[in-house]
Design a protein around this nucleic acid. Structure first.
Lengths: 208, 208, 208, 208
DNA sequence: GATGAATGAGTTTTCATTCAT
DNA sequence: GATGAATGAAAACTCATTCAT
């Protein structure tokens, strides 16, 4: 169908694209978004100067693709985790916590990228969709879980909306903690913190 | 003691310094840290080109002073809130929550500055002390509160360390929420979210 | 072996590099080293602003390359002159004198460059090697010549070390004379001055 | 005649003037003429920023005054040396040599200043008179000495004009040697080099 | 598709000079 | 006379982008 060699070229194109996205994330983690330059990205790849403009037209569009890439990856692993968890709300909450602290997501580079784009989200609106996607998804799923838990209660004093918000905020805050102090962060302890929150709100579901 | 006129000059010097810090914060909020340039800062002040280098030597040092300024301000208002709260742990926790959601701290510009510097904290280590100061203070105070509450319990299922971490994380996460969606943020509701957490952990202190 | 077109690009790169070195020397001669600016260099070439940083990274490194260039050129013509002179010390001394007063070396621009870098040699140590190379070479060769002449003497009153130093100093001093008063300088007369010195020290070799 | 205190002010004015000239020379020696800035001069004196413009109107005029100062000083010590030497040409030549190698003249700072201004002499014509003054004076005096020596000869092979030029050039060249390698320079040996030249030209006067 | 030399707008910084105090 | 904050032109350098090869 394609000309001979076309597939090889196609895949080298895709490979270059991916190299550039990885190198950009690395450069953000190493130098900070404000100090990322085309040269710094390229020196991590060995590719030629024109490459970014060839594949992404502008540096700014490459940055947007980086945001998209990490967002997609996060959403993907989240979806898998939820899908694998089964229907019980307590299992789903555990899955969500697990997913958020998984090293494939919660690692230095990913957090560096995530926090970098958040810092600029208002001034570069192109980044917003990829930041929002996390928030939206989380909101929906965790609110659903809390509603289910309350329904199975009785937890007369728990408002599912507020409980959901506190879980979301705590997960968010623990990411921040990791980002700022990755060396002191204890992943298992962080999970326990959120599970203990769950126990405080929903003792019947999380042992009581 | 001063030469005549020295006072007028002195105070205008200090005024200009402050103008530059304010303008820089405004520029960060408006354009993002990566897009802040000397020109953009100055056009907000009407001051002359050499001014930043005269007062701060370099743009980078001005940025550090901005970080310092917002950190100092935050710590100051926190300290006042705690000091005013009296000894009871439940009052102190309420004061802390109140302080963190006070519009003098939780507003667009301050959050923009806060999140901007966090994004670069690893690549520009000069920012770290001013970011860390918040974490350290919070940790100490909130852990103290939780310890007191547990001591006055009985809350056999609550670990004060973990409870403290979840409060810290939730406060942090709600700041993030404000930063990303200031238009949707409901300040009063956010306070309620944290108070409901408090009620879940410490029902006897926060009414049950 | 090269990609098509690479050769054309390559050679134009080298040509631009050379243009910048030439233009810098011209600017030094015209404005003085202290007044040489990137703009002044570029306006002599018609090249674009980024060119100096592209080819030399910094203006300072370009200046070092200018020093290297003139040093290399001087050493080269000196070596040829010595090589062509044959073994007899009187011929070699004549060749050395000839080389030092040759218009390819002793001309306004070259002297301007030479004296400019000497003026800064202590404060910009990068210049030193290129200034020293002249001194070292001269010392070695002229001392050798004087030793040979003395050996073929008898010149009981001549110390070859001192004679060599006086020739070196005189050649140096006549360069200075040219540099300061190029319009009054008489090249042929300058040669005669040194030859008469030679005759005073070594009458048997330089006719008596 | 003056108001009381006027003399004190007068002399403080003169003292400041002199401090600035000294500091400028020090800055030239330390940083090179091209790197001398008003700030660098002032930080050596502790004087206030406006001082240079107050005393010399512009930095450029201060530099000219530095050139004048060192020229005046050189000419002065030369004149004393000649005046003290008596009428005999061989004594006068000895005095001239002595004067040129005297540490009050031949020292790092003075040479740094001297060579710095020479480097810029063509591009800043204001420096020229102070550089030329040395050449002119030397020429006249040394030519006179050589003429006298020849007249008292017989030195049938010596042309007094050329002999004079070679002495001037050698003195010049030995200054250059000192400037470039002050650590290796042996003052006494340098004097001997010139005296041996004298002996070669004028054996009857300089013992043979 | 790929390269990397070239461009030039825009950046930060320096610095001689001015001038209100 | 003396001060030093302020100015703004000009400096060096950075860098995303272009485009001939």
């Amino acid at each position: 169908m394609d000309k001979p060699g076309a597939k090889g070229r196609e895949s080298s194109k895709e490979r270059h694209r991916q190299m550039l996205i990885d190198a950009t994330a690395a450069a953000i983690a190493e130098h900070g978004l404000a100090q990322v330059s085309v040269s710094r990205i390229l020196e991590k790849t060995g590719l030629s100067r024109g490459m970014i403009n060839l594949h992404f037209a502008t540096k700014q569009k490459l940055l947007v693709e980086v945001a998209r890439h990490y967002s997609d990856q996060y959403i993907g692993s989240w979806n898998s985790a939820i899908a694998a968890a089964g229907p019980r709300p307590e299992d789903r909450l555990r899955a969500v916590i697990e997913a958020d602290f998984d090293p494939s997501v919660l690692n230095r580079r990913t957090m560096a990228v995530w926090f970098a784009f958040r810092g600029e989200a208002h001034s570069v609106p192109d980044y917003m969709p990829f930041i929002d996607s996390r928030e939206a998804r989380m909101n929906r799923v965790i609110y659903g879980i809390c509603t289910d838990l309350c329904a199975q209660g009785p937890y007369p004093d728990v408002d599912p909306r507020r409980a959901a918000n506190s879980f979301i905020a705590a997960l968010e805050g623990l990411w921040t903690d990791f980002h700022l102090h990755p060396d002191d962060f204890r992943r298992e302890e962080a999970r326990e913190v959120v599970l203990e929150m769950a126990r405080a709100y929903f003792p019947r579901h999380f042992r009581g």
